[in-house]
C-alpha cells in the first residue's frame, strides 16, 4: 500500500501539477512516483465482498479507481453492477456451457469403458468418482491433463473477467473433476503433487519415476 505520508502532495482533489509545470495528469507520470490520485487496487474501504468468491452477482465496482483522475483509465463506463457484456459463449472453450455434469462433454472425455449413464442429473452423485475408477493409468493421466488445462485456461480468463458467473461455474466444475481424478491417480499410481504424497508409509514414493521429462 502506498504510504501517503511520503507523498503528501497526492491528496485527492489536488491536481497533478506537483512542480512539473501545468501538465495535467493526462499522460502517464514518470515512475517510480505513484500515479496522481489513483488509489491502489486495494481501496481503504474495501469491497465488502471477497472478490474471489462472489456469492451474489458482482455488484461491487472493480478495482477501477473512483477518484476523478484525468489519467485515461482502461475501465468500463459503468460499474460492474450488471453482467458484463460478453458473448453468449463465454470464455474460449468450445464446449457447450455445462449446466449438467461432465456427461455433456464427450469431446473432452477419453474413450473409456465406463458404463456410467450419459444423461444423469446436474448434481454429481455423492461419493461417485464418475468415470475415474474405470480408466486405466494412461487414460486417467490424460483426463487429469485435460481437466487441469480447462482450469488453467479459464482461470486466465477469469483473472480479467472476475464477474463472469458462468466462467466461475465452469472453472469449479472442472476443478472438481480434476481434484477427483488427481486423488484417484495419486492413491493408485503415486503422487503427482506433494499434497497427495501422504499415501506412503514405508517409502517416500514421491521420488519415484518416471519424472515428467523421462
Amino acid at each position: 500500500m502506498m504510504n501517503s505520508g511520503a507523498f503528501g502532495q497526492f491528496q485527492r482533489g489536488n491536481s497533478c501539477s506537483q512542480g512539473r509545470g501545468q501538465t495535467s495528469c493526462a499522460q502517464p507520470q514518470p515512475r517510480p512516483a505513484t500515479p496522481c490520485n489513483q488509489p491502489q487496487s486495494r481501496p481503504s474501504a474495501p469491497c465488502s465482498q471477497p472478490q474471489s468468491r462472489p456469492s451474489a452477482p458482482c455488484n461491487q465496482p472493480q478495482s477501477r479507481p473512483s477518484a476523478p483522475c484525468s489519467q485515461p483509465q482502461p475501465r468500463p463506463s459503468a460499474p460492474c453492477s450488471q453482467p458484463q457484456p460478453r458473448p453468449s459463449a463465454p470464455c474460449s472453450q468450445p464446449q457447450p456451457r455445462p449446466s449438467a455434469s461432465c456427461s455433456q462433454q464427450p469431446q473432452t472425455r477419453p474413450a473409456t469403458p465406463c458404463n456410467q449413464p450419459q444423461g444423469h442429473s446436474s448434481h454429481r452423485p455423492a461419493g461417485s468418482s464418475c468415470p475415474c475408477s474405470e480408466m486405466n493409468r494412461e487414460q486417467l493421466f490424460r483426463w487429469i491433463s485435460l481437466t487441469k488445462f480447462a482450469c488453467v485456461d479459464s482461470s486466465l480468463y477469469l483473472d480479467t473477467h472476475p464477474c463472469d458467473v458462468e466462467a466461475i461455474a465452469y472453472f469449479k466444475e472442472h476443478m472438481h473433476l480434476y481434484n477427483e481424478a488427481l486423488a484417484e491417480y495419486s492413491k493408485t499410481y503415486g503422487p503427482l503433487t506433494l499434497a497427495h504424497a501422504h499415501h506412503c508409509d514405508t517409502y517416500w514414493d514421491w521420488v519415484n519415476q518416471p519424472w515428467p521429462w523421462q
Binding site: F141, R142, F149, P191, L192, T193, L194, W213
Partner: peptide, 12 residues
C-alpha cells in the same frame, strides 16, 4: 509455488 509432477502437454 507448487509443483505438479506432470508436463502441461505430453512429450515423448
Amino acid at each position: 509455488f507448487n509443483y505438479e509432477k506432470r508436463l502441461e502437454y505430453p512429450i515423448n
